[in-house]
Design a protein around this nucleic acid. Structure first.
Lengths: 256, 256
DNA sequence: GAGTGGTCTAGACCACGGG
DNA sequence: CCGTGGTCTAGACCACTCT
């Protein structure tokens, strides 16, 4: 089994606060994961078995499991059980490289599924962003992406038809990047990226099969071509435990 | 009051799933926040008042509050109550600009407190990173940073004494950036940054006065000078609701 | 000291999955 | 179907803050 992602140099794996029952439960389970007694993908004992094993009420067990989930060590499959999480994928949103590429490069198996593609009228926000008239048609694509069979992110992409006429007639289950490049000669020279820890809600939570309110990472990326036109607007909602964002760049000198 | 940070164009503010009591409670409270009936910094009614007001058990109320916390709309002050969150600060870790600078530029009030500064022997990980012998002395600094009086991040900084001899004798309650620049003539030309949603634990949780296991964002930054030497190694642990990371850069062409 | 959230118990019923 | 997690109740005691 691959080792877990490296921890910062100073951090303990054992939580202090042993006088709290749920922390004690958390520590015993975490120890089994770090010792590989429980391995990636394994199912934990059921909550009621843990209840009995630890002699604690079910609410206390669930508190411990929630904490382990927040730490990214385990995840739940609805009404199926709790499982040990695989290590996160490393993602560099500044590269114009596709999901399929960097996931495979890390020895994992990516999959993309197009959930919907349609023309939508530009909302005020999108019209301003793309510099088009209100209600102008824009392409909207919604995709689900998985790693090793586990859904990890849903994304919503907006593309101006002027940039890629007829885009929706192509299959988008592979790489949008390569379709744009090979069929439309589009290239990207600049990315604006923002990231925020947030909660997965509504449709996205349902699609990812996490409970509404589960922690996630929102990544919003706007790509520009060399002429400064927007190539795509992309909103990605990631499971929080599935991704480490990593960028390596030259510094913009600050004013301070 | 400043408006809340913009939402992505498609997202509802009201959660579906009204048949669930805790979602219904969440929606009623969220509606008050979006309508500014509850304003930034306001305290919510106590859990027992909400229990009575909504006719739900306290566990259900806490489930709703936990979800609102996960969404970043509210936060707790231990045994004091629940409060409406201020909007997140925008942070560009690729710039070599200090915290003090970018927080003030956004009309907020920053504060830095040095918790400890000491010489430590290089661990295997740090020795390899800095290219020094095992056990070589390194400077270690731990600081707490606040915005408008609310603790938002703790950071641990490692600096090679060869880069800045006597660094610890300076006051580090302001900008480390400017001390390095003005006293040592150090400049930064490259940053490697990684970010990961994680859980605040142990000392860091205590320092930030959040409960252990609360969601956070870990930002690890390694800065290099033009000669490729490491200027500083910096681990920041942010409250998840206090920050939006934003970078704007030229693209490294991917292989795909 | 009063009120707060933090923790914990011991039950219950439900919806959904295929261990 | 049976076992699972998801939700919910109605209590309890504690440690802490000072609303």
């Amino acid at each position: 089994m691959a080792p877990r992602a490296p921890q910062p140099w100073w951090r303990d794996m054992v939580e202090t606060g042993d006088h709290l029952q749920y922390i004690a439960v958390r520590n015993r389970v975490a120890a089994q994961i770090f010792a590989s007694t429980l391995r990636v993908g394994d199912r934990l004992p059921s909550e009621r078995q843990l209840e009995e094993g630890f002699g604690a009420a079910r609410g206390t067990i669930r508190e411990a499991l929630n904490q382990l989930e927040a730490e990214g060590l385990i995840y739940r499959r609805d009404r199926s059980g709790w499982y040990v999480s695989p290590p996160p994928i490393v993602y560099d949103p500044t590269r114009w490289e596709g999901f399929m590429g960097y996931v495979e490069a890390q020895g994992r198996t990516p999959k993309t599924e197009t959930l919907s593609k349609q023309e939508i009228p530009a909302t005020p926000y999108l019209a301003g962003l793309f510099g088009v008239a209100l209600e102008s048609p824009l392409f909207a694509i919604r995709r689900l992406r998985s790693i090793d069979g586990r859904a990890v992110l849903v994304e919503r992409i907006i593309v101006d038809p002027a940039m890629a006429p007829g885009l929706l007639e192509h299959s988008l289950d592979l790489s949008l990047t390569s379709v744009l490049k090979s069929h439309y000669g589009v290239s990207v020279s600049r990315n604006k990226v923002s990231m925020k820890p947030f909660a997965l809600l509504g449709d996205d939570a349902e699609t990812l099969r996490v409970r509404s309110g589960a922690p996630g990472l929102s990544v919003i990326r706007v790509s520009f071509d060399p002429a400064g036109r927007i190539v795509e607007y992309d909103e990605e909602s990631w499971r929080h435990d599935s991704v480490t964002v990593c960028v390596d760049i030259r510094v913009n000198m600050g004013s301070e």
